[in-house]
Design a protein around this nucleic acid. Structure first.
Lengths: 171, 171
DNA sequence: TCAATCCCGACGTTTTTCGTCGGATTTGTG
DNA sequence: CACAAATCCGACGAAAAACGTCGGGATTGA
């Protein structure tokens, strides 16, 4: 009865790279100031594949977000205070520039190629979306994600639900 | 020199389904009130594969956004006025619910599964992002995308560039 | 010396995406 | 009626991307 044959996940899909990477960073933020944490510990604690974490860590390190200590008792630690690490920077380090579309460039040189229809007005849509995402992402820092539970109320998210909308009943 | 081996496109990736589908809808919006437009015309005008458009059209029709006329001189037309069709609805019809992550549900029941780390605070991030996207998407209607060229300045997008950031030189 | 780490490139599997294809059905027109 | 122009629809296949594994090298503390 699978219904619509949607592309499975849905629009706007962050990969596990993004998810795991953020989990990793949050874990490091929790231990901030207490010396390096090994990936094995993180992997165990968060139930993530260690070898995969290594890949992500390298990207984060190259972006200057974390620092490594090699050898026994080594590991990773944040390069800066959690409050000074914007999530936008983290996500970009993990997944590359967050352009929702080739077309999201505001470059007018691109006009000729895109739509034969005079001008690629559709452009406006993607640019707007990208800007919205960037703004949301850069308004949160790692420190915001470390708080154990029941966040104060720094960010107001209106919880227009989204989850189902199409799939309907039964998980 | 390919550098980072990023997942190619970048975070937040809309598929061609979304792109083509929006192009299709904009095209229909341009002809709104002038009877149905055939997919062949749209395909030609926008340089898109017609057979693929058929798939997308069916999804949009099932969502009640467009109506079809079969037989010769048939085609598709918008079911409502362009100004009454929010882009969020269009995208959801094309790509499914726009949850950036399984984790984006605010459902507390989900807490147990996600992170062993006491509570899935990371949740906040995805929920925020999703809300931002939904808001941006639902603030635009098809009518906003139809304006021929050089939009006045209804929306202010701060053009923090994004495009390269990692890949650097050469296209 | 040994074990724990980071470091790193290469690879293989699975999933998703992007379409194509062939045909069935409906309907206006000559 | 015959035909052509359309929507309709399921199935299929090639290509790309995502996900993660593997094997080994280099560093460092005990």
């Amino acid at each position: 009865m699978v219904r619509t044959a949607f592309p499975s996940s849905g629009a706007v899909h962050f990969s596990t790279r993004g998810e795991y990477g953020v989990r990793l960073m949050v874990e490091l933020a929790r231990h901030h100031g207490k010396g390096p944490v090994s990936l094995s510990e993180v992997a165990e604690h968060e139930d993530l594949p260690r070898a995969y974490l290594e890949q992500l860590a390298i990207g984060l390190r190259d972006a200057g977000l974390i620092e490594s200590t090699r050898g026994a008792h080594g590991g990773y630690e944040l390069a800066r205070h959690p409050a000074e690490i914007q999530m936008g920077v983290v996500l970009r380090a993990l997944e590359g520039p967050l352009a929702p579309m080739v077309c999201a460039s505001e470059d007018p040189a691109h006009a000729g190629l895109c739509g034969r229809s005079g001008f690629c007005t559709v452009n406006l849509l993607w640019v707007t979306v990208r800007a919205a995402i960037a703004k949301a992402l850069d308004s949160l820092t790692l420190a915001d994600l470390v708080r154990p539970r029941a966040m104060p109320h720094p960010v107001h998210v209106d919880l227009v639900d989204e989850r189902i909308t199409a799939g309907s009943s039964s998980s």
